[in-house]
Design a protein around this nucleic acid. Structure first.
Lengths: 253, 253
DNA sequence: TGTACATCAGTGAACGCGCGTTCACTGATGTAC
DNA sequence: TGTACATCAGTGAACGCGCGTTCACTGATGTAC
């Protein structure tokens, strides 16, 4: 949060001292309360005063812990990415523990975990993948790290089948696809993707777009309430089609 | 907008009278100004007072034309859907005029028009397909009509190849896909889809999700600024993959 | 054609609200000697 | 072990702002006779 103070000249800072522990506890309380407000009213309506009120503090007291409303938003974004990352980690760990899983299975596990998390935390999802909060721009240096945890897993899963000899067959319009792959150069430069194929990255991004598009549509009720009788089955089908995109011609689960 | 008055007992209402024409002109001015504010500040920051100020009116005067801020938002949504619909109509008309076009081409024409419109009107796009405006819920009876113009075209395009004998080959996980199709029953009941195939609807929705997901990612910079070197080429590739989804095994453009 | 009257658009003041942020302050907690 | 002092967390008042909405009003526009 905010620097505890320009520089502890003397006194204070005794790590683990009672004051430091109190401070950490209150920092946690602030974040918990802020997340509850986010869940209830959405990011645009986030109010420092309301949060302070809920904590039984005076609004100005919050400034001991948070330098501005924007910083609180940044903290919330980081917390949401972390929460989402944890959910996906847990789902993957459970899946890997229970059975030997193919890449296709794991792709499904990941995106199902994302959807479950999104349905449980719609405003957090909106904060990460919906329209930006007006007047706020996330500082990239603080949000990109936690923001890529899910993608890291996806990249891993995408690379799996390729390592065991699978390669996607050529598809219809290879000219457009080739140009699309070239556009990915800046991403391919990431060390995380070293040795990877831009073809599978392109297809992975398409699958990811499909899944996020489907989740957004469901969450924001773009087809109207009740248009889809069985959202779970519908999403399963979307995942199946997304999976065909990533591993064309390969049998899924 | 607002009912001109409970019931014109006497006087007024002379259709085309100078006062009526003035009223229409001002209604237009309000909508234009509101759209400009939307484009500049986003929907959440939309303010009746600010709009009135821009129009050189006192804020209370706006209530002669609009019953509340929520109603203005509804008008903006309808206007945005109409604008988007017009863009797609124009693009289709131009494409049909210039050359004989296959279904695949028309799909591409439609979604490219959607993307172009979204890039030109990001806040309108966010209003329609992004996270909902906090505290506002669109009245379905006023927004669903204009909201389906694009979908109507898509359905038409999807049905085209089927009419000329094309049928999608079976794909990997037909159990999940079959269940997904069953979930579409409420949509299939729409007269617009009479005689259509739920298979192609399912695939069409997947393609639509893919495209909207890609547009959202681009607009809201979800991959970080500059992550994709050539957004046009990237989107072309996404459309190609989406197209493969709708017409699997069929050669595109 | 003139006149009395209804309806309109727009004004200006006000109500009541909530917001982010700053600031001087008090009393408690901790630390150095 | 005691004491003087630094630093802390939290208070309370205030600044300045903008918002949506209501209301009684004025003068202009239109209409019926």
């Amino acid at each position: 949060m905010v620097d505890p103070v320009p520089a502890p000249v003397r006194g204070v800072g005794a790590i683990g001292g009672i004051r430091a522990r109190n401070r950490e506890a209150i920092e946690r309380e602030i974040l918990v309360t802020a997340r509850r407000h986010l869940a209830e009213h959405g990011a645009a309506a986030l109010s420092l005063r309301a949060i302070a009120r809920d904590l039984g503090m005076v609004s100005s007291a919050l400034y001991r812990y948070v330098s501005s409303r924007d910083e609180l938003l940044t903290l919330l974004i980081v917390a949401a990415y972390d929460d989402l990352g944890d959910s996906v980690d847990d789902a993957l760990a459970a899946a890997r523990g229970s059975a030997e899983a193919t890449g296709a299975d794991l792709f499904s596990v990941i995106v199902h975990a994302v959807r479950r998390w999104a349905l449980a935390n719609p405003h957090d999802y909106a904060l990460l993948y919906g329209s930006p909060v007006p007047g706020y721009h996330a500082p990239a240096e603080r949000t990109t790290g936690p923001g890529t945890r899910v993608q890291v897993h996806l990249v891993e899963v995408l690379a799996g089948p390729a390592r065991s000899g699978y390669h996607a067959p050529p598809t219809s319009n290879s000219a457009a696809l080739a140009a699309g792959e070239r556009a990915l150069a800046p991403i391919m430069a990431d060390p995380l993707l070293a040795g990877g194929s831009s073809t599978s990255l392109l297809r992975g991004l398409a699958a990811w777009s499909l899944v996020l598009g489907a989740i957004s549509a469901e969450l924001f009720e773009q087809f109207g309430a009740g248009a889809i009788a069985d959202p779970d089955a519908y999403f399963d089908a979307m995942v199946t089609l997304a999976n065909d995109l990533v591993f064309p011609g390969r049998q899924g689960q």
